[in-house]
Design a protein around this nucleic acid. Structure first.
Length: 520
RNA sequence: AGGGGCGUAGCUCAGUGGUAGAGCAGCGGCCUUUUAAGCCGAAGGUCGUGGGUUCGAUCCCCACCGCCCCUACCA
């Protein structure tokens, strides 16, 4: 075992031996504390020193040493516990020879416990007058720099534990993330939902269009797929009579990494029998406003340069969004009727692309021949998606790109599906669930016929069979927890809301081309 | 995958075609109310890796590795 910086590592090992020589356990088993640093700062932050002297408050507090100022026969340190710091003051004639010797052997990063009482220093800082010092654990490696903290983003992600110690904001993001999930559970539990866990290893990947990760089960000798969505299992449960279910857990998609994408990400997915997509839209408006209010204190939330207003949501059909956000420089916008007509979306896309290519705007790149619905979806993404900054419910998706959604009775080319966009990001996707087994089979087979990495290769017959047992009319939705957390914590990258985002493994770097180059 | 940027002490960062610098952390010493404690002293580096140009490269060029950003795939 050797880690950089080696000299400090060895130095601290030596100190640990000296601490043992003083009669302390190198790795003690417990410390009985009465208060956390955070609670004391909260409770006594304003209490005057005279009052602290008059009613002596005895405390036992544990924490990590994050600052250390040793002055001859006395010293100060800050202990960090539950995210907050409290100062401790220690002098030789109070803690005694042995206690003070131990104090001398402490380093930044060590865990200690103290017994003492609260007081205020000359500069009026709330502090603990230490009467007894307890050694709890040695940090063999140094903390990040005390003033700037840890700013190297790579180190912040790879060694998140250091980020959490050094950067209060980072800690706060993950506390908020936990609160968001708690609020969501409360919301759905309060509406009669039950929380379930469905398989994360699937024999047939399904429920979304995405490339799966493949793994293998040895005893059964079968390949399994890390799930790309829990959808098909959750709907089996609505068949089984769980009329309101939700699951909060990971999905895995073998695709690119970006500020908005991590290969494993957390989704809340929920299904509600006897409701349709309009019911969910209404529910979402309430949910997002409630969450913003509970988490940030206001329905208006700062995100980067903008203010997001969750008190209301704009509603647009996909075609309306194309018309609304069509850039005037690209000529007259298409009409709703034009987009609905056969070939209309393709024609509009060609006009848009002609302008986009010469102006440098993102254009709608298609591979292969597309259906009207696919052109519509593509055109929407190019024209409108990144313009949807304020919370927007986008609805009525083409059937061609919505294989699990129920069609609109008056127009089978469209489905009862919506997505919620905020800050240009898709954060939710919901629909009236297709529960006609014959139609579902047709759609699955059409997907398979279309081919491609992200399309199902195999028909999920058991799912069709489940539908044949009858699924009540049901509305379902998925909400991306990571992106939602980004919005409510003002985080610009998904890596800032995932504790351990996927990075290339450290120290690898022995690619075959590199070793060939070395050999040549 | 393509384009752009970055990589110097443990951390945060300067810097130059001529043998490498600061602050913090660490080490030795002084200091019993300090707080980015202070003062004195010593130490710490294959300047991401490998090639090339050059009398000489941390600096210029190329390749590779890693990270970040944008685009593409996707949620």
């Amino acid at each position: 075992m050797q880690f950089e910086p080696r000299d400090q590592f060895e130095q601290r090992q030596k100190k640990l031996q000296q601490i043992q020589a003083l009669g302390h356990d190198a790795y003690p088993r417990e410390f009985r504390w009465t208060d956390t640093a955070a609670a004391l700062v909260e409770q006594y932050g304003q209490t005057p020193g005279a009052e602290l002297e008059a009613n002596r408050r005895e405390v036992r507090v544990a924490g990590r040493i994050v600052s250390l100022r040793l002055m001859g026969k006395a010293g100060f340190a800050h202990l960090q516990g539950s995210g907050k710091r409290i100062q401790v003051y220690l002098k030789k004639d109070v803690v005694g020879e042995r206690g003070f010797e131990l104090f001398h052997l402490l380093d930044l990063g060590d865990s200690i416990g103290v017994r003492g009482h609260l007081f205020r220093t000359k500069t009026n800082e709330l502090s603990i007058w230490v009467e007894e010092l307890f050694f709890l654990s040695k940090a063999l490696l140094p903390l990040p720099e005390k003033w700037h903290g840890l700013t190297d983003v790579e180190l912040r992600y790879r060694q998140r534990y250091l980020d959490l110690i050094a950067n209060e904001k980072a800690r706060q993001v993950f506390v908020t993330r936990a609160r968001i999930i708690q609020e969501l559970r409360q919301f759905f539990d309060g509406r009669g939902y039950i929380e379930v866990e469905t398989p994360m290893m699937h024999p047939i990947p399904g429920g979304a269009a995405a490339r799966p990760f493949i793994t293998h089960h040895n005893t059964l000798d079968i390949d399994l797929y890390l799930r790309i969505a829990p959808e098909l299992y959750l709907k089996r449960l609505t068949v089984g009579g769980f009329d309101r279910v939700y699951e909060i857990n990971r999905n895995f998609r073998n695709e690119g990494i970006s500020t908005q994408h991590n290969p494993e990400f957390t989704m809340l997915e929920f299904y509600e029998a006897y409701s349709n997509y309009r019911d969910l839209m209404d529910m979402n408006e309430k949910l997002f406003a409630l969450l913003a209010k509970k988490i940030t204190g206001s329905t208006t939330v700062k995100y980067g340069e903008t203010e997001l207003d969750f008190s209301k949501m704009q509603r647009l059909s996909m075609r309306e969004a194309i018309v609304k956000y069509w850039p005037p420089e690209a000529g007259l916008p298409p009409t709703l009727e034009g987009l609905a007509a056969p070939g209309g979306a393709h024609e509009a896309t060609k006009r848009y692309n002609a302008w986009a290519k010469q102006s440098g705007a993102p254009y709608a790149a298609a591979k292969g021949t597309l259906t009207d619905g696919e052109w519509t979806g593509l055109l929407f993404e190019a024209v409108a998606e990144d313009k949807l900054i304020q919370p927007t419910i986008l609805y009525d998706f083409p059937t061609d790109i919505s294989p699990l959604s129920k069609q609109k009775p008056e127009d089978p080319t469209l489905t009862e599906r919506f997505e919620i966009y905020v800050a240009g990001m898709e954060v939710a996707n919901g629909f009236s669930e297709l529960n006609d087994p014959a139609e579902q089979e047709r759609r699955f087979l059409a997907q398979m016929a279309q081919g491609g990495d992200e399309m199902p290769k195999q028909l999920d017959l058991d799912y069709i069979r489940a539908l044949c047992h009858g699924m009540p009319p049901t509305a379902g939705e998925g909400i991306g927890i990571d992106r939602l957390t980004m919005l409510l914590t003002d985080s610009q990258s998904i890596r800032d809301v995932i504790l351990f985002p996927l990075l290339r493994p450290e120290g690898g770097g022995e690619s075959s081309s590199a070793s060939e180059a070395h050999g040549a």
